[in-house]
Amino acid sequence: MKESAKKVKAILAKYPDSGRDALIPILQDIQDELGYLPTSAIMQVGAHLALPSSKIYGVATFYNQFRFQPKGRNHITICRGTACHVKGSGKLLENAVATLKIKPGQTSRDKLFSLETVACMGACGLAPVITVNDEFNAKASPAKLNRLARCCKDEITQERENS
């Protein structure tokens, strides 16, 4: 059995004899563990809850939280709340898409970056906000974002040279 399948099995074991209302918590646990929802995991969940995969995809694709691609090494989220918008998060996003060459929800081919937008992080007082690997960066700007991206890239090049 593959490593990820074992992890999913362990999660499912926490929900014995569960009905459909356990579906979303299970998917959340799996995503917490694996970073995304692979097809194989969906099949396992289906077998456990006696639900067709189509129904599970129906639920999973409905909610913004679920991802179907693995996260990149640097996961960047950009807040698109109103306060952030008024303070220029739209420009931040355009800039990120142009610089990283990926769209929200995608992971770059070299798996270094993934990009996501969220509706509102609730840190409106510090707008615009971005997070890099869950670390908050308040009052972000295109220049700051570019600097962060460059730092991440440099770090990785350095590592490659060292190894």
Partner: peptide, 25 residues
């Protein structure tokens, strides 16, 4: 406690209840 999964429409009461029951909100 039930954790939502990021759908704005789930703030609507009937959608929220659907979501608690494990359905599309």
């Amino acid at each position: 406690v039930k954790e939502g999964a990021g759908a704005f429409v789930c703030g609507e009461e009937t959608a929220l209840l659907a979501s608690i029951m494990g359905k599309r909100g």
